[in-house]
Computed example of a mutant assay.
Amino acid sequence: MGRIGAANNLGTVIGPVSGGLLAAVGLVFPLYGVAALTALMAIATALWLPQSPHQPTARTVSLGKVLRSGLGAYADPRLRDLLLTGVMLFMSFALIQQTLGFLFQDHFGLSPAAAARALGLTMMAAAVTSLFGQIVVVQWLRAPATLLVALAVPALGVGALILWLADRQLVMSFAVLLVGLGLGFGMPAIMSLASLRVSSEEQGRVAGLASACPALGFILGPLVGTGLYTLDHRWPYLLVLSLMVPLAWLAWRLVRSAAASA
């Protein structure tokens, strides 16, 4: 489950990197890249994806009931703190990712192409630190999931603080490295902890709910972040910094719960 979360997380980080680099060549090139990747996925699915052992049954539940059940899972006491942590982690990352290019362009007087190139390189560096966190710390050192969550919060918080205060592009890029590292720690831990809290019959449901955290974060983050950016260029990072308060509380709850069950 942690590896599935790591793969999801890597795609979320590497996607903006690729888009930023392609946009430096031409602003519409990322759209061509999406079309090409979709074609490759269709071919790979047809050739190599194994058949699912699941046997479909007649649908007896209404769409409304399914939606209510899915949204109600965020109130499930077994999963509530983990899912909220995952949503806020990705909301924080989305806030930074969606506004940083504008900040580079406005604060340093860059052209749109130059700003896209700078953002792409910065996000590529964030992808490297995220990959380091997932491969070295998560997979190789096998750090406990609760420790990973506890490390993710200060990494994100320090990164947001630097972005709020810094006036140099290199320093801002270093801040995004910390944000990528925090995301690399956080989401695999959320996936693995969630899977351990339910029975084997609920694993598929939990995997779907945890995978929805990035989507919810990327819905809320750009919406809130760009709105705040129009008021003040640094306010999105101040919001991320303020989100560290509930995130720190949630991380403390996770660590305390793990210590009590040990």
Rank of each mutant, 00 (worst) to 15 (best):
G2A: 03
I4D: 00
I4P: 00
A6I: 05
V13R: 08
I14L: 15
G15P: 05
V17C: 15
S18D: 00
L21Y: 10
G26V: 00
L27I: 15
G33T: 03
V34T: 14
V34R: 04
A35G: 13
T38S: 09
A39R: 00
A42R: 02
S52L: 05
P53R: 14
H54V: 15
H54D: 13
A58C: 03
R59F: 02
S62G: 14
S62C: 09
K65E: 15
R68V: 04
S69Q: 06
G70V: 11
P77S: 15
P77D: 14
R78Q: 13
R78K: 15
D81H: 04
L82W: 09
L82V: 07
L82G: 10
L84G: 10
T85W: 07
M88S: 05
M91Y: 01
S92C: 13
F93E: 13
L95Y: 07
I96Q: 01
Q97A: 12
G101W: 08
F102I: 05
H107L: 12
F108S: 03
F108R: 04
F108M: 06
F108G: 06
F108W: 13
G109D: 00
S111I: 07
S111G: 14
P112R: 03
A115P: 06
R117K: 12
A118M: 11
L119T: 12
L121R: 11
M123H: 02
A127N: 01
V137R: 09
V138M: 04
A143N: 07
P144Y: 05
T146W: 12
L151M: 15
L151W: 14
L151S: 13
A152N: 10
V153A: 12
A155L: 11
G157N: 08
G159I: 06
L161W: 14
L161I: 13
I162V: 15
I162G: 09
L165M: 15
L165E: 12
Q169H: 09
L170P: 03
S173K: 07
V176P: 04
V179Y: 06
G180N: 02
G182C: 11
G182P: 09
A189Y: 07
I190R: 06
M191W: 00
A194W: 03
A194Y: 04
S195H: 08
V198I: 11
G204D: 09
G204W: 05
A212C: 05
C213P: 04
G217C: 08
G217N: 10
G221S: 06
L223H: 02
V224Q: 01
V224I: 15
G227M: 04
L228R: 10
L228I: 08
D232L: 00
D232S: 05
L241G: 11
V245T: 11
L247C: 11
A251K: 09
L254N: 00
S261K: 12
